[in-house]
Write a protein that binds this DNA or RNA. Structure first.
Lengths: 122, 122
DNA sequence: TCCTCATGTGAACATGTGTTCATATGTTAT
DNA sequence: ATAACATATGAACACATGTTCACATGAGGA
């Protein structure tokens, strides 16, 4: 079962060759993996999760978000830019006030799915 | 609409009071947010996503994973410990070989949901 | 027992990340 | 135009994170 003769230019020796080949064929493109990681990374911060949870119920302006999440306006703004760049939130401007809301319904799916995972694993 | 008289012991001034109050009531417990962030953070790394994608098709041993993901055995082992601690993967030992597999079906849900998000936003 | 092999792990290092501070931008009211 | 205000942003800082390296552990074979 273990095969040590096979290694495509890397020093790894213990291999279930067939399983490895199968797994290699099922690999996703590097770019897809990278983008998924970026998305998960964006959701992997308490402040940003709080922002998303707050926007769940509808749009909010920056200073409202700061009040709800209880961090500085600057911190919120930085995080919103990040979420914006990943198309997780969108915004519209009304005078000097910027109203943010969730951009993509997948975001809520991810949020809910993770919440369920957390609630079920105690 | 804008109210500057209300601020519960923080200096934020511009507030749509009712919206903020509503959002505050809907806040999740700090601990839940923290755990969700931990979970997303765990998924927010290319190496770990590759591990999860590889385990998608069934269990694999550590050196197989190293071969598929193409990083060192040590790096894989460190990442597996992290995933193990978050109950995202489990393992069984057969002699000196450790076989890892996905622990929780929510993990795959999250993975697929994110993949869909990435594929749809180009 | 001694050796080899598969895996685990601590320390160290470079890099990435979130917040704060100061300041810039752009809007509205006076 | 000036002042007040909402938001954006660059720099800097402290801290977290992923990998590598060296070595430990523990199982099986000679």
């Amino acid at each position: 079962m273990i095969n040590k003769d096979f290694d495509d230019n890397c020093e790894i020796n213990c291999i279930h060759e067939d399983e490895v080949e199968k797994a290699k064929r099922n690999r996703l493109p590097e770019e897809v993996i990278y983008q998924m990681a970026e998305t998960f990374k964006a959701l992997g911060d308490p402040t940003r999760l709080k922002i998303i949870n707050a926007l769940n119920q509808g749009e909010l302006c920056v200073c409202d978000l700061a009040a709800v999440v209880e961090v500085s306006q600057s911190a919120i703004s930085h995080q919103l830019r990040l979420l914006r760049n990943l198309r997780l939130v969108k915004f519209r401007k009304e005078g000097k006030v910027a109203y943010y809301s969730l951009d993509d319904f997948h975001v809520l799916d991810l949020f809910r799915c993770c919440l369920e995972h957390v609630n079920h694993s105690e």
